[in-house]
Amino acid sequence: MRSASRALLRLAGKIHSRVESLQPTCSDLLLPDADWSRCRAAGRRLEKAERRGWRLAAVRLRRELRQAMEQLRLEMHRIEDRLTASERPPRIASLREILDDLRFLPDSFDEVRWDLRQEMLSVTTEPIVLEGFPLGRFTISLDWTRIGFTRPYHVLAREPNPAASDEAVTHPHVLNGKLCEGRGAVSLRAALESGRLVDFFTIVDRILHTYHRGSPHSPLSEWGGVCCPGCGDRLSEDDLTPCERCESVLCLGCLSGCPACRGLFCASCLEPCAECRVRTCRSCLSSGAGCGSADGSECFDGVEPCEGGRAQNRDSEADTHALLPV
């Protein structure tokens, strides 16, 4: 028991030394030019899509623009908070306060671990459920030697239930173990640089318990993915494409290209060419484009031209000769 207390005191001492060594800075007060550029680019793409009547693209681009605007708004808030915070130097927690925080952590979190050699202090949250989606518990691990640097901690899903679109997204605001702190960024930094460990872990925990619709890595509405009616696989909505004839929405694996018009079609909207058997869309077959040898050279992929193709070849050859100078 006594050695456990000594270890805790050593840990508190190391964290206290690290925090004391930090100098107050306001190095991240750069204005969000990159976020603004992203908004402008998204706006331009949306305008183009609407002008050309690309409805599906416009829907996606509108969402993209909204996300870019939300990111800009958050960044402006963060800068404002940071600016205000930089006007006051942080109050550094005493060794005693850090020790009290360490003693209190097990009352707030299910699991608290530290490793003096690996210089890591970690807590585990309760199971997190956002809008009905169980995301499991998360372990928040702080590398106290990196306090003062950007994000000196990582967030690991203990029972990962990642987004269908990306296995690295284990929470709408966690990608590859990195938490996008959003509105919590400044208070997190203040808590860490003051040595307020309970506040730091509590703020991370609160961000993990909050779903911000404006700017998730993957929205919860698509978390489990959508089912491709062709193969049954679950994928992100962005990975599904409509058949150009019947508009059934399928994954790329369930769509095939018409070699003539290059459009994407579902299996029931493609038919084999009567001669060469290459599957071609009905429009191209019925319009006389036949199996697609419209360039007059050969059938698809090196297959010998079918009758329709040969007839077309002959016609195009005749046309070509007619155009030659005498």
């Binding site: 006051r88 400044v186 208070s187």
Partner: peptide, 13 residues
């Protein structure tokens, strides 16, 4: 000691 973890995250006596 008053700690406001909203916004700036101040801790003040």
């Amino acid at each position: 000691l008053f700690i406001n973890n909203d916004g700036g995250g101040f801790a003040d006596q």
